[in-house]
Design a protein around this nucleic acid. Structure first.
Length: 667
DNA sequence: GAGCACTGC
């Protein structure tokens, strides 16, 4: 979602004068706790004003003396920018002066900045340059209960930094009651290093701030629903025909069920009695183009009720004004990485109690609301309190690499809030070793491993990028790295334009596969599409995503230049005859572990032959012949295992560029 | 002939 400025402008709490916020009366006790304890856990409900007020209290209390900065981290870019704008407005300063923000591609801070909002991932990156984060007197980790990998790792780093910087103040803010866990983490001794933790009460403390939301009636089903899509649709009609005005937000799991729910509503709308209030169904998921997403923010026409069928994007990332009714199907799609196969599985899983509460809360932002849970109260009681943290179900290779670059050699003993399973750690170490980022003692190699850690792309692509000068195709691989970072959002499909999308895809298609096709798309975009607004629309391309690719490419290029690598962008030099081959060879140096061979039936088999892979329908190879290929990504949707962003290679390249990897595999 | 939840550097 791009336009999260929309988000902030719709949060009514932000427009309440600060003096009226419940947090104001806790000012003195908050400042006392932070003054006297290195770690303060703030349990603040929605609307408590913690994010905007705490940094201002601290600044006024003198925590910026000596030029020190107060940092507030956010899990998302939009939150960092909108909250910074709000605080700048409250203080009455220009954004970027006393109050600023810093997110990837946008550093709106200056020498006079005293309060800085930034994403947690970016603060981790700052630690590469300044390992003790010495510019900051206070670091507030906001939304820590969401348990993103970055905020988990940041908390681990802060615990370590605290031992060297006793004057540093850490504030952890959480919307739910995981406060004890956070406090215990900071007060328990990490084990092998440093003196014992001492008196827990002296180190940390918890403070609770009441929030300000409207009451929400929660209703459950008397008996379980057989089909939650059908049940969601009938519940929407029940609300529409019996409840007072107010828009409806329905949480479903994914694009497919959302589209079918919308179809079902559209069909049934015609059966509503004439002259009754109209019902307007709208989809909301990340894969929609910006214009398609905008409709949900428009006010419904006269005498019309909006019903928005959304993925989890509405749970925390996007806020829609005017929602009075929430329908919660009780499921969410969660990604889990299997370290045995290296495959990510995306499956619908029952939500946690914390998620269910968050979803219900979407109904009470502007007036009292109702939440209809499409499951029984017993089922609710049996839900887990919170989701399994991301760090326990992800491919950890990028993060292990980052920790190594931060000088944390023994990653197995890093103080994680919740340690990831050993298999995930071992798998990440094996991959990094096979790419040459780690040596046989698991130490970061230099310069290769260090440079891979600094590049903001995943390790396989980082390896390919750093190999590219040797193949004479750095400019092209830079583009491919930027384009694959978009994660399949290059194309958009407008309603009823399936064939148009397919034909424009064919226009850019390269015989050698998806990577070269992405290169063609990018080159067409920078020559025509950036100026001509019709270009993207006419070619079913995602303007916002391609613009982002330009930024990513620029940033990656800057990193490489900092390493002393010269990027030759001269268009005058005729492309080498075998350029396409050099590019595919270069990609193989990073993606050799993602290799497969096409079978006579058109499916693929991985190298060990035990897994059947299917070309994703978005890939060129979906309906073309190939022999050996490498691919960017593999994921299991429950029905099939798909590979995406596929290019043809030669089998002997695998042995040429990854001899150790394939010798070990074959014993 | 048929389809990925959401973030982030």
């Amino acid at each position: 979602m791009a336009d999260l400025d929309l988000d902030s402008s719709f949060i009514p709490a932000l427009y309440k004068p600060a003096a009226l916020l419940p947090i104001t009366k806790h000012r003195e006790s908050l400042l006392y706790l932070i003054e006297t304890h290195p770690v303060t856990i703030v349990v603040g409900q929605t609307g408590s004003g913690k994010t905007t007020q705490i940094p201002q209290f601290l600044e006024k209390a003198g925590w910026c003396a000596g030029g020190k900065i107060i940092a507030v981290t956010q899990p998302r870019r939009v939150a960092a920018t909108t909250v910074a704008l709000r605080v700048a407005e409250e203080i009455g300063c220009e954004i970027g002066k006393e109050v600023g923000y810093s997110i990837r591609f946008e550093d709106v801070t200056s020498a006079s900045t005293r309060i800085k909002f930034l994403t947690d991932g970016l603060l981790i990156r700052e630690a590469l340059v300044d390992p003790l984060l010495s510019r900051y007197s206070v670091i507030m980790v906001d939304e820590a209960h969401e348990r993103s990998i970055s905020s988990d790792i940041l908390l681990g780093l802060l615990k370590k930094i605290r031992k060297r910087r006793p004057e540093l103040r850490i504030v952890v803010s959480s919307a739910t009651l995981q406060a004890d866990q956070f406090l215990r983490f900071f007060t328990e001794d990490g084990g092998y290093e440093g003196p014992p933790g001492g008196d827990a009460g002296a180190i940390g403390s918890i403070i609770s701030l009441e929030g300000r939301t409207y009451p929400i009636d929660v209703l459950y089903l008397a008996s379980p629903a057989e089909d939650y899509v059908e049940k969601a649709v009938s519940t929407v009609f029940d609300i529409h025909t019996t409840e007072p005005k107010g828009d409806i937000l329905v949480f479903l799991t994914g694009r497919e069920v959302i589209d079918s729910a919308i179809e079902a509503v559209s069909e049934r709308v015609s059966r509503l009695p004439p002259k009754s209030q109209a019902l307007l169904p709208l989809p909301l998921y990340a894969g929609l183009s910006t214009e398609q997403q905008m409709y949900v923010f428009d006010e419904a026409p006269e005498n019309t009720r909006k019903v928005i069928f959304s993925t989890n994007i509405s749970e925390a990332s996007v806020t829609i004004n005017g929602i009075v009714y929430v329908v919660d199907c009780g499921f969410v799609k969660l990604r889990t990485y299997d370290p045995k196969t290296g495959i990510e599985t995306l499956t619908a899983t029952p939500v946690s109690k914390a998620s269910a509460a968050q979803r219900a809360g979407r109904a009470g932002r502007t007036q009292p609301g109702k939440c209809f849970r499409l499951y029984t109260e017993d089922a609710f009681q049996s839900l887990p309190e919170a989701n399994v943290p991301e760090i326990q179900r992800s491919n950890l290779a990028p993060f292990i690499l980052q920790l190594k670059a931060l000088g944390i050699d023994n990653v197995l003993r890093f103080d994680f809030l919740t340690p990831p399973p050993a298999e995930l750690m071992v798998k990440a170490l094996e991959l990094l070793y096979s790419l040459g980022a780690l040596d046989e003692y698991a130490k970061l190699t230099r310069p290769l491993g260090m440079r891979m850690a600094e590049l903001a792309v995943e390790p396989m692509m980082a390896k390919a990028l750093l190999s590219a000068p040797g193949f004479g195709c750095l400019s092209e691989v830079l583009t491919i790295a930027a384009m694959t970072s978009l994660g399949g959002n290059v194309w958009v499909q407008h309603d009823g334009e399936k064939r148009k999308t397919e034909s424009s895809k064919r226009k850019f298609a390269a015989e050698e596969g998806d990577h070269l096709t992405l290169l063609n798309v990018y080159q067409a975009f920078v020559t025509k599409g950036r100026k001509e607004s019709r270009f993207c629309r006419d070619n079913s391309l995602n303007f916002k995503a391609l613009t982002r690719a330009v930024s990513i490419r620029t940033q990656l290029k800057r990193y490489l230049e900092r390493f002393g690598v010269i990027v030759d962008e001269s268009l005058t030099a005729p492309p080498a005859e075998n350029k396409a081959e050099q590019i595919r060879r270069c990609l193989t140096t990073g993606y050799f572990a993602h290799a497969a061979r096409m079978q006579p039936d058109g499916t693929f088999r991985n190298v060990s032959g035990d897994t059947v892979l299917h070309a994703h329908p978005s890939s060129l190879m979906f309906n073309r012949r190939a022999d050996w290929v490498i691919f960017h990504e593999v994921f299991d949707t429950g029905s099939k295992i798909f590979v995406r962003d596929i290019s043809k290679i030669e089998k002997n390249w695998l042995l040429q560029y990854a001899p150790d990897f394939y010798q070990t595999k074959s014993g």
